Simulated assay, not measured.
Amino acid sequence: MELIADFAVNYGLFLAKAATVVIAIGLSVAWIVSAIAQARAARDGDTLEIHHVNERLDRMADTLNGQLLNAAEYKARSKRKKAEAKQKAKAEKLGKRHEPRRLFVLDFDGDIRASAVEQMRDAITAVLQVVEADDEVLVRLESAGGMVHSYGLAASQLARLRDAGVRLTVSVDRLAASGGYMMACVGERIVAAPFAIIGSIGVVAQIPNFNRLLKDKQIDFELHTAGDYKRTLTMFGENTDEGREKFRAELEDTHHLFKDFVRRYRPSLDIDKVATGEHWYGTQALDLKLVDAVATSDDLMLTAARDGRDVFTVGIQHKSGLISRLTEQGRLAISRNLAESGLARVVHRPTQP
């Protein structure tokens, strides 16, 4: 009987372990399937989020005044604010007061692939449907640059606002370098924080070559192309001086396009002086006319609210699962580390298709 009991216990433990493994595998598969499904339906699940900044600022002020003022002062202030609100509503009802100009605030936090353009393009489309003549768009931009074609698209999205006659201000609190500055220069006005990194109007591409290692290991590598310049430099083949010369010529062409783009939107800029690949801090960039003012985005929004303008943040919220959130956090961390390590001065040129 004791032998049978031991067998039953061991068999029960075996079944429990087996069930645990099966459940774990099932959960993993479900997790992967869910992640794939979320990725496919990403844009369909996106939602437009709008927040009235004035209300948040009023709540902050009320909270502080509640602590700083005595009861009589706080009551008098509340009474005065109610009277002003009543007078404002009455004036609007009688048509004596026009609606305050609105400030729409959009965010762009760029990585090497300018992935945030997918959300920004939808937010711009939404704003373009309601924007009026006296409205303004403020883009809070942060980017160390990245692939040329990706940042070209991102800059083109901002150009949609300019082409529609919308006043566009770009605010840089920390970093707008290389492709980031390509976007920023589209703004009618660029405002940077005192120590924000600005500029890096240049192009760079780098590629490792393992040809000597392959030869040392007696490994053959063959590359067949149709077209003289389908491939200029390769990672595994033996590169030629002709290929290097063509590759450098393509980089120069890209640099010329970059400079022409900046010159188009900022004609007063001495492009040859600043298109050296160098970067400058906000106060230095102001002297070089890379930016128009030194301030933070918080200053701009608070000033607009104090001037009686309605300030709204507009963004696209992407509903993502755990895997997508972890991937996004890793992407942003890598992008910031690259920027802080000095690689912010780079416009990456992608491998030819």
Rank of each mutant, 00 (worst) to 15 (best):
A30T: 03
A305I: 07
G187L: 03
L300C: 08
L48K: 09
L57V: 03
D6T: 03
R189Q: 11
R102Q: 13
T283C: 01
G12C: 07
I25N: 02
R212L: 11
V170H: 00
W280P: 01
H255K: 06
I32L: 13
A41N: 15
L343K: 07
D220N: 08
V172L: 10
R97P: 01
A16D: 01
I124M: 01
A114L: 05
L3K: 12
E142W: 04
H318M: 06
K273T: 07
P100S: 09
T313V: 05
E136S: 04
L64N: 08
F7C: 09
T351W: 01
K230S: 11
H256K: 05
G342I: 03
H224I: 07
D287Y: 05
N211M: 05
K86D: 08
A155L: 08
V274F: 07
I219H: 04
A8C: 06
V170Q: 00
Q206H: 12
A76L: 11
G180N: 11
L290R: 00
A30Y: 12
A8L: 08
I334C: 08
V29G: 09
A37E: 15
M183Y: 10
A344D: 12
R306M: 13
I198K: 01
R309K: 11
E222Y: 02
F258C: 04
G165N: 02
L251K: 12
K75E: 15
V314M: 04
Y281M: 06
L69P: 07
K259M: 14
D253R: 14
S320G: 11
I25R: 06
D173F: 11
V186C: 04
L48D: 01
D270T: 02
V22M: 06
H255Y: 05
K259I: 11
A295N: 07
D58W: 10
A304L: 09
A16R: 03
F247P: 00
G12Q: 11
V204M: 08
A19P: 00
R336K: 15
K88Q: 15
N239K: 01
A83L: 14
R102F: 10
T303K: 11
A344I: 13
V131F: 09
A333C: 07
M60W: 02
R263A: 14
R59A: 10
D109G: 12
V186D: 02
I23L: 05
D163K: 10
T303I: 08
